[in-house]
Design a protein around this nucleic acid. Structure first.
Lengths: 326, 326
DNA sequence: TTGTAGGCGTTATCAC
DNA sequence: GTGATAACGCCTACAA
């Protein structure tokens, strides 16, 4: 800037004013300065700007694992929305590790990011709450409901319910849930089933392991015992795709004997055969909402109430749980 | 820092020296300062540090599309390696759009990133070369070979060759390549085929479209006409998975009538049935190499020669192109 | 409308 | 060893 000031024969602050366009300057001077800046492809030093002003125009992103395509997708939309508002994103993975997450947060603090969007590892632990308090940076949690903190997420319980009702309509005789039993998806799923069949819990198996070999054995013995239709709900597409493959390998007909539903509606769902039914999360909307809320919090630092609004997921039915397939 | 200085009764620069640990300070003072810093959970302002010193400790990452799981995976390793060396990453997507890429680069310049790792949209265009020159930031291209610029990438031609030879060994009567004909993968694939069967080009079909319906029609008519074994090579797993599904839908036996090979070896490959053969890129090694090279360039700003080292891909054979499957 | 002065939180360069 | 003091590149008064 100083250089441009010299070249155009004005003072450095004037250059600043022209480039930021917020204050009145002589049109003639403005043109001269702009031309010079363009000519030299001047890019303002945002580092200096950050130091002088009070904003860094940085949004910190902390994911558990960006190589999960669901998060990768989300990050794209977050970045998009951030950029639209003049912000850039700085990104870290916590690897589902609380200590790494803590480290990430420290680094964010060092960078004096204006705001934080994160997928908390321990969304409701006390130490997480304390850490966030100590950090004192406007933050929004995504994907997970976080008590006492702004968050946007889809209602897993409700989504699980949708899946439960859907599989029930198909006339399943037994059910399998692949994932953690403590999950909201499980809860909603089970609740929906119980509502219509109070005794169904006896016909519901939960596969918690991730080991493909174990999953294979469990499924094999299950389908040897059960001849009727089984409704399977996997807590994410990755797991669902895995099960999809195992079922094919075992020669279990999809959807006739096994009706399968995944979660996240990743692009692969439509590519499989039969297509994988899956619960679609409103990714882009979540991203937009999270960024908007964050910007609002940045603008209103002493707002009290935390936003806690569940978004609706939508079940996309494909071949793997088609109602009729004859 | 100033505050800590006051609290401990030393000067601010001394605090700086203690915290950076590079200069000699009185051990007693050191302890006092460290304790105070810990107590207040002091996080140095890297923005100020960047402005004062000459390094931002930021590495800019420009991807074409991080929602592609191959890139997402790569970014994880890049970030990991960067962090290991004290760097943080700031991330942008170019969306395969040259103008957006240019914008990203400008923003990187504004942030005065110390170095740049990018997946260029137009790896060999003149305007890209000029832009990089103008930018004048140490940079390394990943994934794509880039004339005159440091780059780490896998040798697509060689990889295509591996696939060609593999499919040939299976005794295929015709071949399909799904992807852009100009690609290195295609080139190597074709070369390998021609080497053994000079006339094979007449039996090679190229599917360039991305439209699933069109792909479906082409495959359908192909397998109506050809009864022998067809070797199919898709330029990435995404496309391969799509074809995998279509083949199943059409009732074409894999691998007996259609032997399928993808590219990237994403996690889904092992989950499909039959498992999808795929070319595995050494993701982590590429990431490490890229970061290391970048750090080296940052340390040696006026090094002349560009590194241009191709890495080896490795074909992972699974059920979709199993040699025998009876 | 414009220039001058001071400061943002560090690092770097001096003397002491 | 340590404390002044001057940058770093910009923004925000304030004064002219």
């Amino acid at each position: 800037m100083t250089e441009i000031a010299k070249l155009t024969g004005v003072s450095q602050p004037t250059v600043s004013r022209v480039l930021n366009g917020n204050q009145a300057v002589n049109p003639e001077v403005r043109e001269r300065v702009l031309a010079c800046a363009r000519e030299h492809n001047f890019q303002p030093n945002v580092i200096a700007r950050s130091l002088a002003g009070s904003r860094t125009m940085l949004i910190g992103l902390v994911f558990t694992d960006i190589s999960n395509s669901f998060f990768a997708d989300l990050e794209k939309y977050l970045e998009q929305e951030a950029k639209k508002n003049g912000y850039s994103v700085i990104l870290f993975n916590s690897d589902y590790d609380w200590n790494k997450e803590k480290e990430c947060l420290d680094v964010m603090r060092r960078y004096r990011v204006d705001g934080l969007i994160l997928v908390p590892v321990e969304e409701n632990s006390e130490r997480f709450r304390q850490e966030m308090q100590k950090l004192d940076i406007p933050a929004v949690a995504v994907t997970r409901r976080t008590e006492g903190m702004d968050c946007v997420y889809v209602d897993h319980i409700e989504a699980g319910g949708q899946v439960g009702r859907h599989l029930q309509e198909l006339g399943c005789e037994s059910y399998i849930f692949a994932g953690t039993a403590g999950d909201g998806k499980y809860e909603g799923f089970l609740d929906a089933l119980i509502k219509a069949e109070p005794d169904c819990e006896t016909r519901l198996t939960c596969i918690e392991t991730k080991d493909p070999e174990k999953i294979r054995r469990i499924l094999k013995s299950h389908f040897e015992k059960h001849t009727g239709r089984t409704g399977i709900f996997a807590y994410n597409d990755r797991r669902a795709i895995q099960i999809h493959g195992i079922l094919q390998e075992l020669g279990v007909e999809i959807p006739q004997r096994a009706s399968l539903v995944g979660f996240d509606n990743t692009y692969t769902c439509g590519f499989l055969y039969p297509g994988l039914s899956s619960v679609s999360q409103p990714n882009q909307e979540m991203a937009v909402k999270a960024v908007q809320r964050l910007l609002w919090k940045i603008a209103h630092p002493d707002a009290q109430e935390a936003m806690d609004e569940a978004m609706q997921a939508r079940l996309i039915v494909r071949g793997s749980s088609a109602v009729e397939n004859r």
